[in-house]
Design a protein around this nucleic acid. Structure first.
Lengths: 205, 205
DNA sequence: GTCTATAGACTGATAGAC
DNA sequence: GTCTATCAGTCTATAGAC
């Protein structure tokens, strides 16, 4: 949480020290390229060119390419869980499910690249990194599972199988990212409403 | 549709002519490896080792690596569309939707590797190949969209938006492939039933 | 902190022997 | 149809100058 000082620098330089901006730019470039071409198809030279430095300079900020991928995925999932915790309030199951439905769609549509990487690059994680990411992903799924279970137990929802309903709803909501376009037919809010209508009926509420 | 003759060959050979088995083995090995590691992360030498030949020999069967990927994806989608056409009968929308739901789950669970590749490797297709695959994918989506539209128009389904319902149902059903395990808690038939229960309610039937 | 240069290994694809 | 050998290029990551 240091105060950033580069704005105060009186000289613009084309080379030299840029520690406070190269790091974020590296992560942004990698996220964009990994999402478009895939982790395995992107070279460190390509990322470096996007950042505007030589490839060797990247290793001042990351241990290796794998560490860069892991960092991007973990940050995304940490953000997701933190954002939900900030959003969730003590609610009855029906309101909680509507809140989750709209939150999930909204959060995912705001970060298409991070979402794409989180779903597509799991197989490129080394085993120990994969275990960390899987754990975070399951923790998030549990949020929805808990809502559905509470609603089923209190008789508000009618569900043949809580676990399958969890997977079905998450898949349905996340699927929005595969077809949504900013210039599309429907606004995000309209999409949220339509999906909530379908989710509500699917869980028998 | 030639009669296969290698079963009649009296001699087992470790090298030489194997045109009638190397082709299928190549496709099978590539499908397995692409699904597990991703197209970009798999080398032709790795595929060749799995097949039991040297890398150069593969080029007797494929024009290049891209052609191999395209062939796998196109075959999968051709199979999918052909299988649905064999399955579909003249039915009312409700029966047709149940038929589609169960068909989609069953077909996808039987071919996990092909499904994985079809969804994950789209970005590794060259533009002209991508266009072909996208067209086939959309043709299959239209099957469901037509069922939902017919049901909505005849008043059997209650849908806020036919196009979004199409995407939502496909995403929900395809999602089964991400968590299904052969030794899991539920049989495939039980899963089909549970999903049909949720789909039926989601479309307001 | 970024540069240049490079080690050491791997890549897709092809040529020609058999 | 498969082999060996190879081309010409790519890759990640590091060392050392500045």
């Amino acid at each position: 949480m240091n105060v950033r000082s580069y704005n105060l620098c009186p000289m613009a330089r084309t080379s030299g020290s840029h520690s406070d901006i190269t790091g974020p730019r590296l992560r942004a470039a990698a996220q964009r390229l990994f999402a478009r071409q895939g982790y395995a198809a992107v070279s460190m030279r390509q990322i470096a060119a996007e950042v505007g430095v030589q490839a060797g300079a990247l290793y001042n900020y990351i241990p290796d390419k794998q560490g860069l991928l892991f960092d991007l995925m973990k940050s995304h999932l940490d953000d997701l869980i933190a954002a939900w915790q900030a959003e969730a309030k003590g609610q009855n199951p029906l309101d909680a499910l509507e809140c989750f439905t709209r939150f999930h769609i909204r959060f995912h549509l705001e970060r298409p690249d991070a979402v794409f990487i989180a779903y597509m690059e799991l197989r490129n994680l080394e085993p120990e990194n994969f275990a960390v990411i899987e754990d975070l992903r399951k923790r998030y799924e549990t949020v929805l599972e808990d809502i559905l279970r509470a609603g089923k137990e209190s008789g508000v929802f009618s569900l043949p199988d809580t676990k399958l309903a969890t997977m079905a709803v998450i898949a349905m909501l996340t699927g929005v990212t595969t077809w949504y376009r900013d210039d599309g037919r429907l606004s995000r809010d309209r999409i949220e409403r339509i999906y909530w209508n379908m989710v509500r009926k699917a869980v028998g509420a």
